[in-house]
């Protein structure tokens, strides 16, 4: 009954994804939005590895999750560089105030 199976991991990943989506939708702070994206990517990774472990076998899930981690790191670096540039331009990282690409 309480034995942990595939569905348990899927439910945790679903909750993680929902919380990340909530974070992305409601935050005005650009860094907060990036945090929500990280949560969503983590949820997807859990799904990759859980399906590999319980349903698919092989290694593809882990390899995909590793690629996702690499791309998430790249996305965080670029995103935070953009946030810093935005802060230098506007003295604020409120995404509702960032409407122009160039000063």
């Amino acid at each position: 009954m309480l034995h942990v199976g595939l569905a348990h991991f899927l439910v945790v990943a679903a909750a993680l994804f929902s919380l990340g989506a909530f974070c992305v939708i409601t935050r005005k702070n650009a860094v907060g939005i990036l945090m929500g994206i990280e949560l969503i990517l983590n949820a997807a990774n859990i799904n990759f590895v859980a399906f590999e472990h319980y349903s698919a076998g092989g290694l593809h899930g882990q390899v995909f999750a590793l690629f996702v981690i690499v791309l998430a790191a790249a996305e965080a670096a670029i995103g935070l560089a953009i946030v810093l540039a935005l802060f230098h331009a506007l003295r604020s990282i409120d995404v509702t105030r960032a409407a122009e690409l160039k000063e």
Binding site: V49, H53, Q62, L66, I69
Partner: peptide, 16 residues
């Protein structure tokens, strides 16, 4: 999430 990876038999992923 790293602990979840350990439970799923992916220790390398957990460390990463």
């Amino acid at each position: 999430v790293a602990a979840m990876y350990v439970y799923l038999g992916a220790p390398f992923l957990a460390v990463t």
